[in-house]
Simulated scan of single mutants.
Amino acid sequence: MSFKHLIDPAYSKSDYFPIDLSVNNTFWNENDVSDISTFEKYLEEKRTLTGKYIAHGGYLEQRALYRKSARFQAGVVRDIHMGIDLWAPAGTSVHAFMDGVVHSYAHNDDAGNYGPTLILEHDFKGKKLYTLYGHLSISDMDKWAVGFRFRESETIATLGKPGENGGYSPHLHFQIMTDMQDYKGDFPGVAAREELDRYDGVILDPNEFIFEKIL
């Protein structure tokens, strides 16, 4: 399996390092992970410490971040992150995971959501896979059309700024699904622990496709 460049291929696999935003990271007991300046400072410190640049992580990570947002407190507390995140500056290019067509897209513009979101449909070993790319730039949306084909590694978007990406430090939320369940331009990316069973076999571990076998 070759390395999958989801963001700017100028960054090699040696530029990536894991980051911990879980409730188990005691740093977030006293610091607000939802504050962009605090997070950016933390990120820069980790880059200096590791000598690497692209932070990644988050699959099935229980995050304190979501406990600070009303969006994730309605009914049950949703704080389990179901995709992976890759942190890089706004404007960094985003690339197709594999050959596919545009399934749907939307600007999910309420606070704490994905902002501009693109979903591609792929044929993989005789079955359908769907990949979600969230927190993109609004200007990219003019380039998308349902059914439009992208080739593997082709540029599909750029990372958005906090004012357009749902209010986050610039990053890509990437998620793999086997069934869209009638969603278009959107799919849940955060769940309550008691909801995880319903996503078993529907949301796949992106690390199995991208990181674990190569880093």
Rank of each mutant, 00 (worst) to 15 (best):
P18D: 03
T48M: 09
F39V: 09
L43D: 02
K161V: 11
N29F: 05
Y16T: 01
Y114K: 01
N207M: 03
L118C: 02
K127E: 05
F27M: 05
I36L: 13
T131S: 14
H135D: 10
T26L: 12
D109Y: 10
R149A: 14
M98W: 11
M177C: 08
A10M: 00
N31D: 05
P18S: 03
L132G: 01
M180L: 04
S37A: 06
L136I: 05
G163H: 15
S34W: 08
N108D: 01
S69A: 07
Y168D: 05
G166P: 01
K41H: 07
P18G: 02
K184A: 15
V33G: 00
M98G: 02
R71G: 01
Q62W: 10
K46R: 15
K184S: 13
I119W: 07
I84H: 02
A106I: 04
A90P: 04
D85N: 09
F17Y: 14
D35N: 15
Y53D: 05
A90S: 12
R198Y: 11
Q73M: 11
L129H: 14
P9Y: 12
K143A: 14
K68V: 04
E30F: 06
W144S: 01
I156H: 05
A157S: 14
A111V: 10
P162V: 01
G147S: 12
T92I: 15
R47K: 15
S93Q: 02
Q62Y: 12
I119L: 10
G58S: 06
E121F: 05
R71Y: 07
A90E: 12
I176T: 14
I119F: 07
N113T: 00
H107S: 07
F124E: 08
H95L: 06
N165A: 09
I203F: 12
V77Y: 00
E45P: 00
A96R: 11
Y42F: 15
D8C: 11
A145C: 04
V146Q: 06
Q62E: 14
K68F: 02
E61L: 14
T26K: 13
F209T: 03
N165K: 10
T178D: 07
M1C: 03
E195G: 01
F150G: 00
F174C: 04
D200M: 07
D182S: 15
K46V: 08
P170S: 12
D197Q: 14
T117D: 06
D20C: 05
V94W: 12
Y66G: 01
S14C: 02
G185Q: 07
R47S: 10
Y16P: 00
H81V: 09
R198S: 14
G160Q: 13
A10V: 03
F17G: 04
M1H: 12
S137K: 08
S139A: 13
